[in-house]
C-alpha cells in the first residue's frame, strides 16, 4: 500500500487555488476567439474583448480574474490502495484552501451558517467530493465556483414521459430566466438521471471538462450540440446585452435512474470557468 503525506495535498491545493483564480484556461480563451469571429453585436464583441484583456492583465499581475474567487469545490479521486498519513485528509484540503486564499490575496466568500451569515474569514470550509477508484494515486481537482452563476442553477424532477423534449425545455428555461445574471457567455452544465442529488453533482462535474468538449456518447454529444444552438438563439449575448454568444458550451453527463424518475439539473458556470487538476 502506497503512503501519501497529507501535507503534499495542502501544498498542491494552495498552489492550485492561486493558479486557478489568476490564469484563465486556453480552452476558454479559444472559445472567446471563436465567439468574436461570429458575434454580430458591437456591445457583445466589446465585452468579449474586455474579457480577453482582463485575462492577460490578471495573468501578468498575478491577480484574480474576478473578485468572486468562489467557493473552493474540490473533487478527490482516491485510489483504493492509497493510505493517507500525517493528518486528516479533509483538514489538509481545508488548510490548502486557507493558505492559498490568504497568500493569493483571494476573496474570502464563505459564511459560517446560511442564516446568521458571519464570514469564516479564510474561505473554508471547502466543498469536498471524494470518490474511491482503483489504483494508488490521488487525483485532485479544484474548481473555484462563483456565487452569481451558481445562484442561477436549477433542478427538476421530470416524469419519464417528459423525455428528451422535457429535458431540453428545462435547460432552455433555466438559461432564459437567468438572462444576464450569471455573466454570459456561460457554460451550461447538465446532469440527467441518477437521483435528486446525483443529477446536481453530475451537472457540476460536467463543468470540469474543457469548454465545448462533447460527451463521448454520440447521442448525448448530439444533444449538447443541439442545445448549444438553441441557447444561442435566445439572443441574451455577452453580459446579457444582446447577441448570439450566450453559451460557450453545453455539457451533459448522465447516470442510470429509477423507472419512475427523470431528474435533470442545470449548473450554470460563468465565463470565468476556472479549474486545476493534479495527480499525487
Amino acid at each position: 500500500m502506497r503512503e501519501l503525506d497529507v501535507s503534499l495535498i495542502t501544498q498542491a491545493l494552495k498552489r492550485m487555488a492561486i493558479e486557478a483564480n489568476t490564469e484563465l484556461g486556453d480552452d476558454v480563451l479559444c472559445a472567446f476567439d471563436k465567439a468574436l469571429a461570429i458575434e454580430p453585436s458591437d456591445t457583445g464583441r466589446d465585452v468579449l474583448e474586455q474579457l480577453k484583456l482582463n485575462a492577460s492583465i490578471a495573468s501578468e499581475n498575478k491577480m484574480p480574474l474576478c473578485q468572486d474567487t468562489g467557493v473552493a469545490v474540490v473533487f478527490a479521486e482516491v485510489g483504493q490502495d492509497l493510505h493517507f498519513v500525517g493528518g486528516d485528509l479533509n483538514e489538509a484540503i481545508d488548510e490548502g484552501v486557507r493558505q492559498g486564499y490568504a497568500e493569493g490575496y483571494l476573496r474570502k466568500s464563505i459564511v459560517r451558517d446560511p442564516l446568521n451569515r458571519v464570514n469564516t474569514g479564510d474561505n473554508t470550509p471547502a466543498i469536498i467530493h471524494i470518490t474511491v477508484v482503483p489504483g494508488d494515486k490521488l487525483k485532485l481537482t479544484l474548481a473555484p465556483k462563483g456565487g452569481g452563476s451558481e445562484n442561477m442553477s436549477g433542478i427538476a424532477m421530470l416524469k419519464p414521459a417528459d423525455g428528451v423534449e422535457g429535458v431540453k425545455a428545462f435547460v432552455l428555461e433555466c438559461v432564459s430566466v437567468a438572462g444576464p445574471n450569471p455573466c454570459p457567455p456561460i457554460i451550461v452544465g447538465v446532469g440527467v438521471g441518477g437521483t435528486f442529488e446525483i443529477a446536481a453533482l453530475l451537472a457540476k462535474k460536467s463543468l470540469l471538462r474543457p469548454v465545448g468538449e462533447h460527451n463521448s456518447d454520440p447521442y448525448y454529444a448530439a444533444l449538447e450540440a443541439e442545445l448549444q444552438e438553441e441557447v444561442n438563439k435566445l439572443g441574451i449575448g455577452p453580459m446579457g446585452m444582446g447577441g448570439v454568444t450566450t453559451s460557450l458550451g453545453v455539457h451533459i453527463e448522465y447516470h442510470p435512474c429509477h423507472i419512475a424518475s427523470l431528474p435533470v439539473a442545470v449548473n450554470i458556470q460563468c465565463h470565468s470557468a476556472r479549474h486545476k487538476e493534479v495527480e499525487l
Partner: peptide, 27 residues
Amino acid sequence: GATGGAGALISLCIKSAQVIAYDDLGP
C-alpha cells in the same frame, strides 16, 4: 452594467479606496 468577471481590468481605473463603514463585513 459593468462587465462581470472583468475584475482585474476594472481595478486599473480605481485610483483610491478607503473603507468608510462596516469594516466587520470584510469584502
